[in-house]
Simulated assay, not measured.
Amino acid sequence: MLDITVIILTYNEEVHIRRCLENVAPIAKDIFIVDSFSSDTTLDIAKKFDNVHILQNRWENNYAKQFNWGLQNAPIRTKWVLRLDADEYLLPELVEELQSKLPSLPEDVTGIIFNRRHIFMEKWMKRGIYPVKLLRVFRYGKGMCEQRLMDEHIQLSEGRAVEFEHDFCDHNLNDLSWFCHKHVNYAIREAVDLLDIELDLTGVAETDENKNISRQAQAKRMKKHKYVRQPLFWRSFAYFCYRYFLKGACLDGKVGFIWTFLQGWWYRTLVDAKVYEIKKACGSDKEKIKRFLQDKYNITL
């Protein structure tokens, strides 16, 4: 067993939670479920595991806020913390790598970056987006989730991160209707994130170079800043073409097309439509936009 605590956010995750817990329970000293008052059997399943502890907190439409609440309120007694979603799991090779390397890492290493692979419609999306490198393990007290509506990463307060070789999987078992509905919900938050980059709605201009997040996360964030400056709707089409043709997703067959179209074009077009909707109603008036978001989407900046 490793000197590590796992934090998992849940809301009605009965389809995933057993797989997730069976994956990490053998290697983790403690697992904290931060639940948003699930109404299915999520908690009944979780209670069957001896090292699982359950906390409940009201969801406020903000992943970072919920994760940091768990980090602050869970009685963590380990050196390391692993952030994991209920529909994710570590591959056996990554488990072995953790067992081999984690106990002997030098003290100045405070974060560990994994490769994330997406499994979509039971197929690994090898091209177009893989590998996504994410900092998912950090020394307790040395990291927290940066406060963003979307695209939030673990940010280290000190030390350095190292990359591990092997992968964890994002493997959601819900159907396409669920997938699309989830992205409809994501779209407004992504639109607000883009508007914040463009107009500085929050009044705190980003200085990404000073954020202690992974190099790939920094590069992705800077690409997002360039993306914001491109014309609405054209940019979503260009992004699809980039992933599908230049990054090779076209080689992943029909499933690769569905994945790249839905996530890389349809979703991005929906985000642009939300940006267009907000600007049509408010122009570039920051205060008017913030009131619009509060009144229509219950989003407070």
Rank of each mutant, 00 (worst) to 15 (best):
Trp69Ala: 09
Gly283Pro: 00
Val132Ile: 10
Leu98Asp: 01
Thr207Pro: 14
Lys48Trp: 12
Leu173Phe: 10
Ile113Asp: 00
Val52Arg: 00
Gln66Asn: 13
Ala46Leu: 04
Ile7His: 09
Ala86Trp: 03
Ile76Lys: 08
Gly159Met: 02
Leu262Asn: 05
Val109His: 04
Lys254Val: 14
Val132Gly: 15
Val109Ala: 01
Trp59Leu: 06
Ala273Thr: 13
Glu190Gln: 08
Val137Thr: 05
Phe261Glu: 05
Glu93Gln: 09
Lys254Ile: 13
Phe49Leu: 02
Glu190Ser: 09
Thr300Leu: 13
Gln72Trp: 12
Pro131Cys: 06
Asn174Asp: 14
Pro26Val: 02
Lys226Asp: 15
Tyr239Ala: 15
Gly159Gln: 03
Ile113Lys: 00
Ala217Ser: 08
Tyr244His: 08
Lys279Asp: 05
Asp167Phe: 11
Phe120Gln: 07
Thr78Ile: 06
Glu60Ser: 14
Phe257Arg: 11
Lys211Gln: 13
Asp85His: 05
Tyr242Trp: 15
Asp85Trp: 04
Glu96Ser: 15
Asn298Leu: 08
Lys142Cys: 13
Val137Asn: 01
Gly283Trp: 01
Asp175Leu: 07
Trp80Thr: 04
Pro26Asn: 03
Pro231Thr: 02
Met125Pro: 03
Ile7Tyr: 08
Asp175Glu: 13
Thr269Tyr: 12
Tyr130Lys: 14
Glu97Lys: 03
Lys29Ala: 08
Glu165Trp: 10
His181Phe: 14
Asn185Leu: 12
Asp196Met: 01
Glu146Pro: 07
Leu71Lys: 12
Glu198Thr: 00
Leu173Tyr: 11
Arg83Cys: 10
Gly159Val: 02
Glu152Trp: 09
Glu88Ile: 07
Tyr140Lys: 10
Arg117Gln: 15
Asp208Ile: 15
Leu293Thr: 00
Ala219Tyr: 11
Ala205Cys: 15
Met222Trp: 13
Phe292Glu: 02
Arg189Ser: 10
Trp178Leu: 05
Lys142Gln: 12
Asp44Tyr: 11
Ser284Ala: 11
Ile31Ser: 03
His153Asn: 07
Phe67Ser: 09
Tyr244Gly: 04
Gly128Pro: 05
Ile27Asp: 06
Glu165Gly: 06
Arg58Met: 13
Glu13Thr: 09
Asn73His: 10
Leu194Trp: 01
Asn62Ala: 12
Lys296Arg: 15
Thr202Tyr: 00
Asp285Ala: 00
Arg148Asn: 03
Ile31Glu: 02
Glu287His: 00
Asp200Lys: 06
Met150Thr: 04
Ala86Lys: 03
Val162Ile: 05
Lys286Ser: 06
Asp87Val: 01
Trp59Val: 02
Tyr239Asn: 14
Trp265Pro: 07
Phe168Pro: 01
Phe114Asp: 01
Ser100Cys: 11
Phe168Cys: 05
Asp30Val: 05
His225Asp: 14
Tyr276Leu: 15
Ile197Met: 08
Phe233Met: 06
Phe233Leu: 07
Glu209Ile: 15
